[in-house]
Simulated scan of single mutants.
Amino acid sequence: MSHGKMTRRGEREQAFVLIFQQLINQNTIEEIIDAAEESAEVRVAEFAAKLASGVEENNAVLDDKISKNTRGWSMTRLSKVSFALLRLAIYEILFEDSIPVSVSINEAVDLAKKYGGSEDAPFINGVLGSIAKELEESHE
């Protein structure tokens, strides 16, 4: 069985799906990956698993960043798509130094366009933009 090399984008999308599923069913990322691999011909890419697990381990830090940068939005009003994508992108921005911040933002916005409602992409773009700016200022 050849799986072909999955692109970074495909791996990121897989990570998003895992994080999204966790918001819905509350299982651990490991349980979700095991179930996916058992039930279907799905191989979860190593990078996707790494991202999703990293998000899971750092939920508190990520959610703190989200709530600080979604002024006037309660976390419960966020769509699950937005929430999962924000967790993923902020994790990349904070912990994956090999990925340029602009790439993390663009990819999250693209996935929001694919999976979210019309408000999700501009909303995510705005939140991630302010987080990126905050980081730049702290590194100067």
Rank of each mutant, 00 (worst) to 15 (best):
S2C: 08
E30Q: 14
E38L: 15
T28I: 05
D97A: 12
S118V: 04
G116R: 05
Q22N: 12
G4D: 13
V103P: 00
A35E: 14
A36E: 14
E56C: 13
R77T: 15
N25E: 12
G116I: 05
N25T: 04
V42P: 00
R43V: 14
S39Q: 15
S2W: 03
G116V: 11
D64V: 06
L86M: 11
L94F: 04
S82R: 05
Q26I: 06
S2P: 12
L18K: 06
N59L: 13
T76H: 13
A40S: 10
L51T: 10
A48L: 07
T7M: 08
E38H: 10
E96S: 07
E13H: 07
S2I: 13
Y115A: 03
A121V: 00
I99Y: 01
I105T: 07
G72L: 08
L51V: 15
E92R: 11
A52H: 06
E41H: 15
Q26C: 11
K50H: 07
A112P: 05
E92W: 00
K5Q: 09
N69V: 05
R77E: 10
L128V: 00
R77H: 13
D120K: 05
V44H: 09
A60I: 05
N59Y: 13
V61I: 14
E31A: 05
E31D: 13
A132W: 00
E46C: 02
E30K: 09
R87F: 01
L88K: 09
I19E: 00
A60W: 02
E96C: 10
N125W: 04
L135G: 06
I105Y: 08
G117T: 03
K114L: 15
V42Q: 12
R8I: 05
V42D: 01
E13S: 11
S82D: 01
E30D: 12
N27L: 08
S118H: 00
K114H: 01
V55W: 12
T76D: 14
I99H: 06
S67R: 13
G129P: 02
K50G: 02
I19A: 03
F83Y: 14
E41S: 09
E140W: 01
I66R: 03
A36W: 14
Q21P: 00
G10L: 04
A36P: 07
W73H: 13
H3L: 14
E137Y: 15
N27T: 03
V127S: 02
P100E: 07
E46G: 14
S102D: 15
V44W: 02
V44I: 15
V101Q: 02
D97Y: 07
D34M: 06
E31L: 05
V81W: 03
V127E: 01
L86D: 06
D63F: 09
T70H: 08
F83W: 10
F83A: 07
V81A: 08
E30N: 15
S53M: 10
V55R: 09
G4M: 08
K133C: 03
L23K: 12
E119W: 11
N59A: 10
D63H: 05
I33D: 02
D110C: 07
G126R: 11
E96M: 06
K133I: 08
S98E: 15
A40I: 09
G54I: 11
E46V: 12
V44F: 04
A48M: 12
I66E: 01
M1Y: 08
V101C: 07
E41I: 08
S102N: 13
E38Y: 06
L111Y: 02
L111A: 08
K50D: 09
V109Y: 02
K80T: 04
F16Q: 11
D120G: 04
M6T: 06
